[in-house]
């Protein structure tokens, strides 16, 4: 699935593992806020985390891979949805937006060094969430035939939740990058270059 060069085995494994991670985020009962009172699926955090940790290209590929599994009929989307029907429905724009948002988040985090500060990861995640909405809303309007302005108003209800998820994703990504230094895209790139130099 590589551009010009073939993806090394380590990248293949990370892309596959994060596709699975995005799927698990959508499984019922895998994530609960406030004890068990409010079941909230945090699947939309998946693309943000994939971008922040794997980087632009690999992050976007892992989201694409996840969508490929959904298209093949596996019920991996939040709420147990799956199959080709999802791609004919009104949420298809958000799914495309996930790919773009993972790429965008990765791009920003990659540019911010091998130990990206929380503020950069936060900016990246907010930009990624905004990108998902910027693609999802017009597509939803086109698919449903509801004028853009009305669709936009309906979607406003999701903005606070999405913003909270973006902040949370940024905290989790920076936490993971502190605990596992290889979790920053630029750090991993540097290490791969070191290895290539030695060889």
């Amino acid at each position: 699935m590589a551009g010009r060069s073939r993806l090394p085995a380590g990248d293949l494994a990370r892309i596959a593992a994060f596709a699975a991670f995005i799927a698990v985020l959508g499984l019922p009962g895998s994530f609960h806020l406030f004890g068990n009172a409010v079941p909230v699926t945090l699947q939309s955090m998946g693309p943000l985390l994939a971008g922040a940790i794997l980087g632009s290209r690999r992050g976007a590929l892992s989201v694409l891979l996840f969508l490929g599994l959904v298209a093949a009929g596996l019920p991996l989307l939040a709420g147990g949805r799956g199959g080709l029907g999802v791609f004919a429905g009104p949420s298809v724009g958000y799914l495309i937006g996930f790919v773009v948002s993972a790429f965008l988040v990765g791009l920003i985090v990659e540019r911010s060094g091998r130990r990206p500060g929380v503020h950069w990861v936060l900016v990246a995640c907010l930009a990624g969430s905004a990108a998902t909405l910027a693609i999802g809303i017009p597509v939803q309007s086109a698919v449903t035939g509801v004028p853009l302005a009305e669709t936009f108003q309906l979607s406003l209800a999701f903005v606070p939740g999405d913003a909270a998820k973006a902040v949370f994703a940024a905290l989790v990504a920076s936490g993971a990058q502190r605990a596992y230094p290889d979790a920053a895209p630029a750090a991993r790139l540097d290490r791969a270059e070191d290895r290539a130099d030695r060889a």
Partner: peptide, 19 residues
């Protein structure tokens, strides 16, 4: 969530070494 992401990365990197 932080240990989960780290766990996913450990699993991924072990899988990469196996490949």
């Amino acid at each position: 969530a932080v240990p989960l992401v780290v766990g996913v990365l450990r699993h991924a990197d072990a899988m990469g070494e196996a490949l």
